[in-house]
Design a protein around this nucleic acid. Structure first.
Lengths: 239, 239
DNA sequence: CAGGAAAAGTGCGTGCACGCAAGTTTGCGT
DNA sequence: ACGCAAACTTGCGTGCACGCACTTTTCCTG
């Protein structure tokens, strides 16, 4: 059944250490240390991966560099790849949701989502771009990065549900998942240039794929087909 | 960031042993033995999982029961869970695509897809239902089963692309991925009853989720929001 | 300001995924 | 029929994910 498209790829978030939804009381020392550890691991993982090749970094090294035990390391990250990728991902999931919520209630929901996504993926900081190059070099990292999109679903579901009202809660879930899938496709197409020919799966006819434009273009193109669904959903709540 | 929703879950298809798209020449001895081995492993995995608990089955046991080395086992399956789940899944991916292609060209594409999905998931054979009960007992199996939906995407992309023409190749990909996501959601909702309360993720408002109807209902409900997107895509090719 | 419970960190052991480098079988051309 | 090349199998070694039981840290409540 098809080639090894998408091999092993631990989907996001297998950590034991839970981070509760931002509580109103001051975070408390406990939370702050947790986040500090998390960032220390992220940082160490990325730094080591850049210094030596990503292949030459064992979890033991990351843990040591961050000053924790290896066992603790994987209370935070389910795989070596996650640790590295999370450094460039940070909390983009939450930022996208926030960006959608920030748009005035007047605009089309489809546009709000699309622009929010484009916006959050084009903020290409300096180190982030450097790390992206690193990611493209290794399939495992590439996959881990793509799996990041799954994390967008829950917060996006929340904001969409907010706009659609309680009646559309179910619809919101499906739309959010579709958006996540579309974004994944856009990212796939974007960082394809690394010459693998057997990309699009193995089905008969049209072997032509768009020659991969810029990321914003890819995102808009991938999200466009979903716009009618958003419009219909919106229309159903505000006739 | 959220609880451990969707922990480790090796996405489908990490096998080394490739199965080329069905060639026209007679399969040849090589292919037949490969499929035989695959089925022997599937069968052994399921049988052992049913006899003792799924937890009490090591890879070594499965391999031995199938008469191959443990190393060969994971040339076919990337995880223990895949082997077990694949016994109930068989090639449902291809069947769904075929079912879509089978529908007359006159019907709405959205309907064709929905009905094809419902049809292929309601053929609950005897042993299959038994195995589904087994799956619900263990989170790892549940996740592996849900990840099966990812495999629907490639063949579904092909048939949808066929109906939309080459212009809609890109759209087809996004729609297929959305359908896969929707089906996943439907399945999630369906085999939820196993009392876990922290299901829907952790976002503020509406904690009400539909009390999970039958599988066909869940599927139709999950796919309905995508219908407008299909209609629009179809309209664009045949005005 | 205790004291005790909850949560995070740690050491250890087990089974597993997977790369590598033979060995073995199958298929095909001459 | 022969033999070569490609494909599959296998043994071995390595690093890793993760459960369990235990220690340490943080937080809350009387």
């Amino acid at each position: 059944m098809h080639a090894s498209l998408r091999a092993r790829s631990h989907v996001w978030n297998a950590d034991t250490v839970t981070t509760p939804p931002p509580g109103l009381p001051p975070p408390g020392l406990r939370e702050r240390k947790k986040q500090a550890t998390r960032e220390a691991l992220r940082e160490a993982a990325l730094r080591l991966a850049v210094e030596r090749g990503p292949e030459q970094v064992r979890v033991e090294d990351i843990a040591e560099a961050a000053g924790v035990s290896p066992r603790t390391y994987n209370n935070y990250f389910a795989s070596r790849e996650q640790a590295i990728v999370s450094a460039v991902t940070a909390d983009r999931e939450a930022r996208i949701a926030a960006a959608v919520a920030a748009r005035p209630a007047g605009v089309r929901l489809a546009d709000a989502v699309t622009e929010a996504a484009v916006e959050q993926y084009t903020n290409t900081s300096e180190r982030e771009h450097q790390a992206l190059l690193l990611i493209t070099t290794q399939t495992a990292l590439r996959d881990a990065f793509l799996d990041t999109t799954a994390g967008i679903e829950p917060p996006l579901t929340a904001v969409i549900a907010e706009r659609l009202g309680d009646a559309g809660a179910h619809t919101a879930r499906v739309l959010a998942a579709s958006v996540a899938a579309a974004i994944r496709i856009a990212l796939e197409g974007w960082l394809r240039p690394a010459g693998n020919a057997e990309a699009a799966g193995s089905f008969g006819a049209g072997g032509l794929v768009v020659p991969s434009g810029s990321l914003p273009d890819q995102l808009r193109a991938a999200l466009a087909p979903l716009a009618p669904a958003f419009d219909a959903a919106e229309r159903r709540t505000q006739p």
